[in-house]
Amino acid sequence: MVFIIVSIPLYIVAFILYAVRGFKGPTVFDSTISIDALCYDVSAFMVILSVYFRSYLLLGAGILLALWAYILDVVIARYYDRFTRIGGDGGD
């Protein structure tokens, strides 16, 4: 339990730094990959908190968050593949 309580602030600071890059990313792709890594790390944080709370019923949220973050990536990539021309606006 001591290890978990010590490593919780590292995760919180990392979440805030990922969110800063997600806010001010120059292109949409920067925000997308930053929020994607944020979702995966929140999934790992939920697993660690389920050990801290000692309840294995809390683990299902981690599985769902890892799967739907992948859907977010695919949606943004599909927008650029289908609906813009190749070599177009440079992502803006």
Partner: peptide, 12 residues
């Protein structure tokens, strides 16, 4: 994308 970020923080 920012909406997805906001819902992730609400999930925590």
């Amino acid at each position: 994308v920012l909406s997805a970020a906001q819902s992730t923080f609400y999930a925590i």
